[in-house]
């Protein structure tokens, strides 16, 4: 946007003219809308004409063999990778392709990485503090003060993810499963409209998996959740709607039973195994 545009665009200049918080327009149904998206790395088509729609409040599982393009798809939604062609909209107002990662995050898309990424040098509490929805510009961050209500919010999430006892320990000492939980906790602190969760139960025990499933299903409805997972048992336990990706495009979509009986899907999966 040119400087002139910025100046003449009155709601950018005057804060009070800016749209209300949570400006995501979902009156027309979908919260995430990807159309004809393609991206290639050195000739390899990681995503090929992908079409995907996520409804507001939906819990969607995405499965697919390795290299199906699941992580690349998340990279595109969160602004890390720019697609070669296609369009990606958040609600019916925000074109995600024009935005960078922090903007997209501020808009209300949270992401959990495949490999759990927490700030190991900071304490569990501080990790959640940084994730908390707040004014994330420089000076407000510099002068930010820990208010009691923030503390309560953080403690609430700590309880939810069961890390109260480790509150003031550095995140680096957590086990793999605990890091997964902390990262989910950080997602919750962000209060996103859409959660992108990449392999949330890798390295978790059966018990932890159950709690994760419980947590994710409880979020759905208020927030939209997209889960990428390999563990079919876990997917079956939470899924209402499943999308199967293969070679960068959608192979099948439907309920778990529907897709698991789809001959195409069986071929792809058996082919993988054979």
């Amino acid at each position: 946007m040119s400087v002139l545009d910025q100046l003449t665009n009155r709601d950018q200049v005057f804060d009070f003219l800016a749209p209300e918080a949570s400006p995501v327009d979902v009156r027309h149904g979908p919260i995430l809308y990807m159309e004809d998206v393609s991206v290639s790395f050195d000739g390899f088509k990681a995503i090929n004409n992908l079409n995907l729609t996520i409804d507001d409040g939906e819990l969607r599982c995405i499965i697919g063999p390795n290299g199906a393009g699941k992580t690349t798809m998340m990279d595109i939604i969160t602004g890390k990778t720019r697609p070669d062609t296609g369009s990606v909209w958040f609600g019916s107002r925000h074109n995600l392709l024009n935005m960078n990662e922090p903007d997209i995050a501020s808009l209300g898309i949270g992401r959990k990485f495949q490999k759990p990424t927490v700030f190991e040098a900071l304490t569990v509490f501080e990790n959640l503090e940084l994730a908390m929805a707040a004014d994330k510009r420089i000076l407000p961050t510099l002068t930010a003060i820990m208010k009691p209500e923030y503390r309560d919010q953080i403690d609430e999430v700590l309880e939810m993810i069961g890390l109260q006892s480790l509150r003031d320990r550095p995140a680096g000492i957590l086990s793999h499963g605990q890091k997964q939980w902390l990262e989910i906790g950080m997602l919750l602190m962000q209060k996103p409209r859409l959660l992108l969760v990449d392999e949330p139960v890798a390295g978790m025990t059966e018990q932890e998996m159950e709690r994760t499933a419980e947590l994710l299903t409880s979020l759905a409805g208020k927030q939209s959740v997209v889960v990428v997972e390999h563990d079919m048992g876990f997917v079956r336990s939470i899924a209402r709607e499943v999308t199967v990706l293969h070679q960068g495009s959608v192979l099948a979509e439907g309920s778990m039973d529907q897709v698991s009986n789809d001959p195409e899907v069986i071929k792809v999966y058996l082919g993988e195994e054979a």
Partner: peptide
Amino acid sequence: SKLGRVSVACRDAEARTRFLGYRVERV
């Protein structure tokens, strides 16, 4: 300050910090 903790966050996991909504380059 919180900004200091964000700095450490940028140092250790730049991408994560960005996905939390911080402008890493401005920090």
